[in-house]
Amino acid sequence: MNAATYYRSSLSAETLKLKNTFALWLAILAPCALVSMNVLVFWSKGQHFVTEGINPWHRFAAQNFGVYALLLMPIYIALLTSLTNGIEHRANGWKHLYALPLPKSTIYTAKATTVLGLVLLSNVVFVVAYLAAGLFLSVVRPDLGFEVMTGLLPVYISVLKLFLATFVIIALQFWLSIRWSSFALSMGVGIVGIITLMVALRWEHIHYYPFAYPFMAIKDFPNETSLQNVFGQEVLLSLGTGLLVFILGYFDVSRKRIS
């Protein structure tokens, strides 16, 4: 058996493990909840948001992005990683997993892929929910101008950038939750991350702070020029440090004695 076979079999087992779990539902429901709340906002008070000369699709996206990048992502990733790895902690599954004829690196990578996949899934759900919400608003609030679907590309690019910019947070939370079974630790780090971000948002070096990467990724939306470069500074930083955390995390976890 080679590494790819190991990885495939491990990953298919991990996906089955998610069946009936809250983690999977969360990945779908969290973006839906956010978007549907903003639908209510636009439905009732849309005229205050969409003013003359503003693309309603962009305005609606920006309305969602703010909360999504600043608040939802860090909390949501913390929840998701600790729920996914919590399956193993709860079932006392680490000893069992590591006594299987699978390389430890495969188990680790397959788990990480699952978490990344869940975050990606919720971003896809977010886009779908966003489109559905816009179409819904074009029906209930025809005056807002949602029937003209233009300029959606920057939205897609922004979501992609947002996803890539969360990579470092995912890697960090993944390591925390695989290392310690405490749910409170993951949530605590997530909340501290958000609070420090809020406090230091105007600090000149904030763009180096990992929890700020998702915010930096959508900050200039819908300014087209900054969106042309998908791999902006925050995305590269996120991918680079994320990969580093991910690899260091592996060495730390594989050293751990299972008892």
Partner: peptide, 25 residues
């Protein structure tokens, strides 16, 4: 089998076996 078996309580007995089967091929 080390002490208590590792069972994923949210899954059926069959799914637990299926998951393990995938890993050991």
């Amino acid at each position: 089998l080390i002490e208590m078996p590792t069972l994923y309580r949210h899954l059926s007995g069959y799914d637990n076996l299926e998951m393990h089967r995938r890993m050991v091929q």
